[in-house]
């Protein structure tokens, strides 16, 4: 069914106005950033908001700051395509730009935003895993001020997040990658494009001064739990060690042991577990090799 339920339409001209609207409209309103998820949900009558607050053209919420040594700030309504093709981000955060490039189709990336992808909080979303692996924080604003939290604290479950009434996610803050570190992203879907991932993962590895022993590792899995799953077992296994083939295999097993996937129309839980192993092996190796070169 393609006819939308009736709603009132607001297109604020400033962030301030947007925040006021979000507050006054409360829970009956939905924020439209790109629309590639929201409009589909509305067409399918999964949600019937009484008001739409369109922030997709708010220049105040768009932009990328990515300077040497200073991490990066990505405003929430920045189009995914602008992130994907940003040369500075590609250089500093290839895991993120790669993940963004694998999301939906070109049209979806042109229309959609990273803020939308995270606020939609689908367990299969592409960007939360790399953001989490990179240690990203989100900035949430309301008329009363702003607060900051890690992406993994923000996303709480299937289509659930920490956004409260009257709030808008306005910014992502990415820390500067530490010395001798590298992050990689991978995903498994049935087709080679236009997929909802059956599993995705990002791995961030930091090496010690010797450029061989692992100082820290953060492995985050997507689509295998109701929210991005940060591995405890893999760091426990790898930190302090030099990577060997044997450790690679064990890292795969460790990640598998933590994944709690479900079976659905796209893949079975067993298969998701299997490919988590494959992704972990590949990405740990890739990130490790890249960190050596970093």
């Amino acid at each position: 069914m393609n006819i939308l339920h009736e709603f009132e339409f607001f297109k604020p001209k400033s962030k301030k106005e947007a925040l006021e609207l979000v507050k006054s409209q409360g829970s009956k309103a939905k924020v439209l950033a790109g629309g590639t998820d929201l409009i589909i949900q509305m067409k399918e009558k999964m949600i019937k908001p009484d008001a739409i607050i369109d922030i997709s053209d708010l220049e105040e919420l768009k932009g990328i700051k990515c300077k040497e040594g200073k991490g990066a700030e990505i405003l929430s309504c920045t189009k995914l395509a602008d992130i994907e093709f940003n040369a500075d981000l590609q250089k500093k955060y290839p895991a993120l730009t790669h993940a963004v490039g694998q999301l939906g189709s070109n049209q979806v990336r042109v229309m959609g935003t990273m803020g939308g992808n995270c606020c939609h909080s689908s367990p299969a979303a592409e960007t939360p895993a790399p953001l989490s692996a990179l240690g990203a924080k989100v900035v949430i604003e309301s008329v009363d001020g702003e607060r900051e939290m890690t992406i993994e604290d923000f996303i709480q479950g299937n289509r659930r997040n920490d956004l409260k009434e009257g709030e808008i996610l306005t910014k992502f803050i990415l820390p500067e990658p530490v010395k001798n570190s590298a992050c990689r992203y991978g995903h498994i879907g049935l087709r080679n494009a236009m997929e909802i991932d059956c599993a995705n993962m990002a791995v961030n590895i930091e090496l010690g001064e010797d450029k061989e022993s692992i100082k820290s590792v953060k492995l985050v899995m997507g689509s295998v739990a109701i929210r991005p799953l940060v591995s405890q077992a893999v760091p426990a296994l790898l930190v302090g060690k030099k990577l060997t083939e044997e450790l690679v295999i064990k890292a795969g097993e460790a990640a598998q042991s933590e994944a709690k996937p479900i079976s659905d129309v796209r893949a079975s839980a067993e298969y998701r577990k299997e490919v988590i192993g494959a992704l972990a092996r590949r990405l740990v190796k890739e990130a490790y090799e890249a960190a050596k070169e970093a």
């Binding site: 087709r191 494009a193 236009m194």
Partner: peptide
Amino acid sequence: FLNPSLHDYKMPTIRD
């Protein structure tokens, strides 16, 4: 019918 959409019914894309 579990997948009556072109999203979950997977016909090949140009990449396939």
